[in-house]
Amino acid sequence: MAAYWAKNSPDRLIDIVRELNPEMRRSYLNAVALSYSWHESERVSWEWEGQLVRHYGMQHHWESNVVLVARWMDFPWDRWLDTRFAFGQGLSYAWEVPPLEPRSEPDDEGSARLLNYLLMELEFAPPSPDSQWSAMIRLHHRSGVFGTFSGVEGGSNFIGLGLRYRF
């Protein structure tokens, strides 16, 4: 189980990852995520994750996400700081059309309730095998995948911090 808080960036996903210095604006989300690991090896864990998200600030709506996640769990420095990297791909349903998702291009017609969802996450925990708590940095991304979903060209990016508890 994880909970995280995130702040919106109007920057494109590629610019956030490449430059690591995004512009931020006063739109936020709180999320609760439940994960189930259905296959795990020494290095990779495959998981299903469901999320319930509440947006506030410049937009006010709920969002639900279902995601297939691959989590890389083997790093050379794990004996000092247990580190994991996750990448997830799935579907996102906004209970109202989010007003921040349209880009500023003149031909951009807006967004849609059902879009693609992508997550990237770095997780850090004490090196103890009994440690059930961890901290995480997560990129929460909704988009139309270049028009694949309802012709939507835009999307939204939120950069967040959270905690995870493993049962």
Rank of each mutant, 00 (worst) to 15 (best):
P10W: 08
I14L: 10
P129Q: 08
G144R: 00
D107E: 13
N157V: 01
S45N: 10
S37T: 15
A31V: 12
W77Q: 05
F146T: 04
L91H: 05
A135I: 13
V145L: 14
W5R: 01
Y56I: 08
D108M: 01
N30D: 12
A3W: 08
F87H: 03
E121W: 05
E42K: 11
F149R: 00
S92V: 04
V44T: 13
S156W: 06
H140E: 06
E49M: 12
H141T: 04
P98L: 03
W77T: 05
L52S: 11
F75V: 04
G162N: 04
P22F: 08
G147T: 07
E121G: 00
E96G: 08
W72G: 00
S9M: 05
D82T: 14
P106E: 12
L115R: 00
S37P: 07
E123W: 01
W48I: 06
W133T: 09
R43L: 02
V97C: 03
A6L: 05
D74R: 15
E105S: 11
R79Q: 14
L161R: 05
D82L: 10
Y165L: 08
R18F: 01
F75A: 04
P10Y: 08
R12E: 14
Y117W: 13
V67E: 05
W38K: 02
H39G: 00
S104H: 10
N21E: 14
L68P: 00
R79G: 02
D78H: 12
E123D: 10
S45M: 02
D108Y: 09
E153D: 13
Y36F: 11
Q132P: 01
R43K: 13
S35W: 03
G57T: 09
R25F: 10
K7I: 15
P76Y: 09
H61W: 11
W77G: 05
S92H: 03
W95H: 15
P129Y: 11
R103G: 14
Q59E: 15
E105F: 15
P126H: 13
G144S: 07
R164E: 08
P76H: 05
N65C: 07
E47S: 08
Q51A: 04
P102K: 06
R103P: 00
G160Q: 03
E96R: 15
H140A: 01
L163A: 11
W46V: 01
R43E: 15
R43Y: 07
L115W: 03
N30P: 02
S45I: 07
H141W: 05
A2Y: 03
R142S: 06
T83K: 04
D130H: 15
E63H: 10
E19A: 06
P22M: 05
R12Y: 09
L81P: 14
F85I: 08
V66E: 09
V17E: 08
R142K: 10
F149K: 06
I137Q: 02
R113G: 11
L119M: 11
H61L: 11
Q51L: 12
W62R: 11
E23T: 14
S131F: 09
V145W: 10
G154Q: 02
R26A: 14
G147W: 10
Q59Y: 09
A3H: 03
T148W: 10
N65G: 03
D82N: 12
M136A: 06
L81R: 07
E105A: 13
P106M: 04
G88V: 04
D74P: 00
H60V: 13
S45E: 14
A125D: 04
R166Y: 04
P106V: 13
V17L: 14
L20M: 14
I137W: 14
D130I: 06
A70P: 01
